[in-house]
Computed example of a mutant assay.
Amino acid sequence: MKRYIVFILSFVLLYIVFQILSGWIVTALYTPDLSSINRHGSQEVVFGQTSIIPFFSTLFVATLAYLLSQKLFVSIKK
């Protein structure tokens, strides 16, 4: 159980770091299309909704990968 907790915690940490770095890179490389700006348009910024479902599905897949790798290594050792 200790290995699983260490695996999941390191996976979560790497997942968060990857999300932050990929967001930073995408933001840094973004160039807006200035030709489509409407001069009389609204200056309001609207962000999309966020969901925690992708994180939990990724965590579930990581758990399955861990269990499969443990089962595979046990069968290889025998």
Rank of each mutant, 00 (worst) to 15 (best):
Y15R: 07
L21G: 00
L67G: 04
F56Q: 01
K2F: 09
V26L: 07
S69P: 01
L68A: 14
L29E: 06
L13T: 09
F55M: 03
P32S: 15
V61P: 00
W24I: 07
S36T: 14
V12P: 01
F55W: 04
V12I: 14
F60G: 13
F18Q: 00
L21W: 00
F7L: 11
A28S: 12
T50E: 11
I20K: 01
L68V: 12
H40W: 07
Y66L: 02
G48S: 15
L14H: 03
G48H: 10
I76S: 02
F55H: 03
V74E: 15
Q19R: 00
S22W: 04
V74L: 14
I53C: 00
F11A: 10
R3T: 11
S69A: 15
I5W: 11
I37H: 04
L29H: 03
L72T: 11
Q43N: 09
S35R: 06
L59Q: 04
E44A: 12
T63G: 14
V12G: 05
Y4R: 13
V45A: 05
L14K: 08
V45I: 10
L14M: 11
K78I: 02
V6Q: 10
I8F: 15
I8A: 15
L34H: 07
S69H: 11
L67K: 05
S42L: 07
Y66W: 07
V6S: 11
L13H: 01
F60S: 12
L64N: 05
I8V: 15
S10G: 12
L64I: 13
D33V: 07
F55E: 02
